[in-house]
């Protein structure tokens, strides 16, 4: 046992408030998000995925400005050019002489946009629906869940195609159609979460203190579901990107002359046999990278959010 020589024995000095709080800061409990981040950082594949996603996002915004070409400008002198440094056609050109570098990144932007917004719509609608259903329970829950079962009984592809045609093909229609066919999964997940949270002590405590349902949902329920919901989003985004690609395949994709990764890949099919396979493989690779990164990241996030679920 050592005694601090600077403090004379038997004498006590008042604590300096500033140093007290400074120390307090060090021991402050780690917030949920910090905790998740700490665990996520240890998950190497997830960190690589984040890096890949950030890089792609960066290219999506910066890429189109890296050369002088416009995504829709046609140049008939350079039709179906192979990837080359010359004239900065790094990804080559398509059959109307448009720069594939710019088109690919613009297309990736559209695909990501569709993925992210469709996923967010799913989240908003799914949370509202799921929380209401789970929180009120009983008859409400029964009816709301039966309704979901019915909706899920209609194949997604039919709902999506019908909606896109009815709303006239376009980015908005595609987003809505994908969101409409995807929210049910999120709603079920959220309801499950609510059911398991409902009987936890802190909810009981809040309820006995007379918290109103709306506040209860906003303050206690929803924040506690952030983890699983985030994990779900990281799987919903690639699903939406895939769905858009399938729509492009049927001819209901993003209207020309704009492009998405789906329409680029679909157009690329015809170039496979005509000596320009890169027009298929470049956008296909980027799409695969995005989807792969999202799903690895999702795995990592799931482990980080709830270590008990680690698999």
């Amino acid at each position: 046992m050592s005694i601090n020589p600077s403090t004379p024995e038997g004498k006590f000095t008042p604590l300096n408030k500033e140093t007290l709080f400074a120390n307090e800061k060090d021991y402050k409990s780690v917030s949920f998000s910090q905790d998740v981040w700490r665990r996520l950082k240890k998950h190497k594949p997830a960190m690589v995925s984040i890096f890949v996603l950030i890089t792609i996002t960066l290219f999506v915004f910066v890429g189109p400005f890296m050369n002088e070409h416009d995504a829709t400008a046609q140049n008939y002198e350079v039709i179906k050019l192979k990837p080359t440094m010359e004239g900065s056609y790094w990804f080559g050109t398509d059959d109307l002489g448009r720069d594939m570098w710019t088109r690919t990144w613009d297309g990736a932007k559209v695909s990501l946009l569709i993925g992210v917004i469709a996923a967010l719509l799913d989240v908003v609608f799914g949370i509202v629906y799921g929380v209401i259903s789970g929180y009120f329970g009983g008859r409400t829950d029964f009816i709301m869940m039966r309704f979901i079962e019915i909706i899920v009984g209609i194949p997604n592809i039919i709902i999506t195609i019908l909606l896109v045609i009815i709303l006239e093909p376009g980015i908005t229609a595609i987003i809505i159609a994908i969101a409409v066919s995807g929210w049910a999964g999120m709603a079920r997940l959220v309801r499950g979460q609510v059911l398991s949270l409902k009987n936890r002590e802190f909810i009981l405590a809040a309820r006995s203190l007379g918290t109103k349902p709306a506040k209860m949902m906003r303050v206690h329920l929803i924040p506690n579901m952030v983890g699983p919901v985030l994990v779900n989003i990281s799987f919903t985004i690639p699903y939406a990107i895939f769905a858009e690609a399938v729509l492009s395949f049927i001819g209901l994709g993003v209207p020309v002359p704009d492009a998405s990764l789906g329409t680029l890949i679909n157009d690329g099919r015809k170039f496979l046999l005509t000596g320009s396979p890169y027009l298929l493989f470049i956008p296909a690779t980027i799409l695969t990278l995005i989807v792969t990164a999202f799903s690895i990241f999702g795995d990592g996030l799931r482990d980080a959010v709830d270590p008990r679920l680690r698999k």
């Binding site: 829709t72 046609q74 109307l96 006239e168 001819g251 209207p255 020309v256 002359p257």
Partner: peptide, 19 residues
Amino acid sequence: AQYLQEQYRKLGVNLEITV
């Protein structure tokens, strides 16, 4: 159609293509 769209754009007529 994309070719024609580009040509008419040069002329000053903007076309929006719907499939």
